[in-house]
Design a protein around this nucleic acid. Structure first.
Lengths: 136, 136
DNA sequence: CTACCTGCAAACCCTTTGCAAACCG
DNA sequence: CGGTTTGCAAAGGGTTTGCAGGTAG
């Protein structure tokens, strides 16, 4: 119930490592990375810390059309490109999404708009040769 | 390995029922609906048929920031609005997304762009009163 | 007939949780 | 010290899959 958060070694290392990356790692990838410095850390701890860091606005959770959550320490407003083959997420600096609003749902359905989320779908350099099935 | 698909009763009913809806149901919701007409149908069959119908381009899989897949028989190009409280997806007719492209990733990373996916995040009429944690 | 499809149930993957011990402040 | 946090392991939810029996063409 409290709002006091302690800076444990686990939390510090997770944040340090995430900030070192621009690859938007999954929880599992973070687990692998952090384990090099804290071999006994558990995956549950990684999830709990990433979730808390996101709640306090220190990092962001990146939810793409892919199945796994990804995490990003870059809080600036930027667009992500998602590889439909491997799920990798890369930044698209300079891309600027714009949504010219329409009328939500069956006329005036009372939908209160908070934000817009745009991602670019494609195939990354490592995966060239395949096709997509991500939808919009 | 074949490309021949049979029109089974299960497949026909799933497609009929999906076409009757504009609510972008989850697999589980489809299961509930179809079971009224085919009580013994299994959830696995529902998933397999929805997947195949999507592969053949008859329907679309709608992947939002939410955890569950949703399905849509409306193949036209349209924007979805996602409720962050309940996950419901509604259509936003008239909304037109535009992405002014930037340079993908670390200069010329070879990302081949296929599409853009935009969704509107907000709170639906039934859920007014809460807040968000969906990211972009 | 027979390749494709179904129902069932178990397997899978990712994420979340309960709990007792460890730890920060 | 006392409330947080951890490690472990099990539970949870959504989706996928193996299999043997059923069925469309």
């Amino acid at each position: 119930m409290s709002e006091h958060h302690r800076m444990t070694r686990q939390r510090r290392v997770i944040l340090e490592e995430l900030r070192r990356l621009s690859t938007h790692p999954t929880a599992d990838e973070m687990y692998g990375i952090v384990r090099k410095r804290i071999p006994k850390i558990s995956l549950g701890t990684v999830y709990r810390n990433l979730e808390m860091l996101a709640e306090t606005g220190t990092i962001r959770i990146v939810r793409t059309c892919g199945r796994q959550m990804r995490f990003d320490a870059d809080l600036s407003d930027h667009v992500h490109a998602v590889c439909v083959r491997c799920g990798k997420v890369i930044d698209m600096p300079g891309a600027s999404p714009a949504v010219h609003p329409g009328i939500p749902g069956p006329a005036g359905s009372g939908f209160r708009q908070i934000a817009t989320r745009t991602e670019i779908i494609g195939v990354c350099a490592d995966c060239t040769g395949g096709e997509a099935e991500c939808e919009g």
